[in-house]
């Protein structure tokens, strides 16, 4: 093999094993390195954000808020009157919850949250929005046919229950307080928080059970 040929083989080998990222990943890398160079973002901040929102935050904070509202009437009153301040009491205030409204399910009312424009969502309380929340099918049908959407999630709402659909914006996002399950009088706040599902805080889940693990 000539020197030219062996150099060509090495090049082909390198190419095959280069593991070139996808087009989108390359564009994101380009954007991030430019923003870091210009001092507009810090790569450690980005890494910390990704780690926190991929693994840690999830809907646990929202479940804590709900369980506290169930067990502490004064807290619930503050939460309903001024949600950002009440969220801040627990240390969960973030940019996505600076303008937050809390809506409560009752026997006669079911609340469902959507963002018809894009995907506005209280992510510092609930983590990153689920795939379906970002789908055009949900964004259009939640307003037009909320009962049909709820059926897809296995939730049948009686005709006499009013469904209120809340359209989120960047300036006003929503958190649903689901009804506290029956037979949970002896449970403490931490145990109750485990019963709260992410979907119940968006409105695609309704009747929580005392024996189910939440945070789905």
């Amino acid at each position: 093999m000539s020197e030219h040929d062996s150099s060509k083989v090495v090049k082909i080998h390198e190419h095959l094993h280069s593991h070139l990222p996808s087009e989108s990943a390359l564009r994101v890398k380009a954007l991030e390195t430019l923003l870091v160079e210009k001092g507009l973002v810090d790569s450690r901040t980005i890494d910390a954000w990704v780690e926190a929102y991929t693994d840690e935050i999830g809907p646990k904070r929202g479940a804590h808020v709900v369980a506290k509202a169930w067990t502490d009437p004064d807290y619930k009153r503050r939460l309903m009157e001024d949600a950002p301040s009440a969220i801040d009491e627990l240390g969960y205030l973030g940019t996505a919850t600076a303008h937050l409204k809390v809506v409560e399910n009752t026997d006669k009312i079911h609340n469902l949250v959507v963002c018809t424009l894009c995907s506005c969502y209280p992510f510092s309380l609930l983590g990153i929005a689920p795939a379906w929340y970002k789908a055009a099918a949900y964004r259009s049908r939640a307003v037009r046919d909320p009962r049909g959407v709820l059926k897809e999630f296995g939730i049948e709402i009686d005709d006499e229950v009013e469904i209120r659909v809340w359209d989120s914006t960047a300036e006003l996002r929503y958190l649903v307080i689901p009804q506290r399950p029956d037979d949970t009088d002896d449970m403490d706040e931490a145990s109750l928080a485990k019963l709260v599902t992410r979907n119940s805080m968006i409105g695609t889940d309704r009747d929580l059970k005392p024996d189910t693990q939440g945070l789905r």
């Binding site: 990222p21 994101v28 991030e32 980005i46 990704v50 929102y53 990153i128 099918a137």
Partner: peptide, 29 residues
């Protein structure tokens, strides 16, 4: 993504670059 509920357990990010976009957007806001 259809039907809606079938994606309920899907990870919020399928690849790291997706998370990085939201991280940059939130940081810049």
């Amino acid at each position: 993504l259809k039907p809606l509920a079938s994606t309920d357990g899907m990870a919020a990010f399928e690849e790291p670059w997706q998370a990085e976009i939201l991280a940059m957007a939130d940081t810049l806001v």
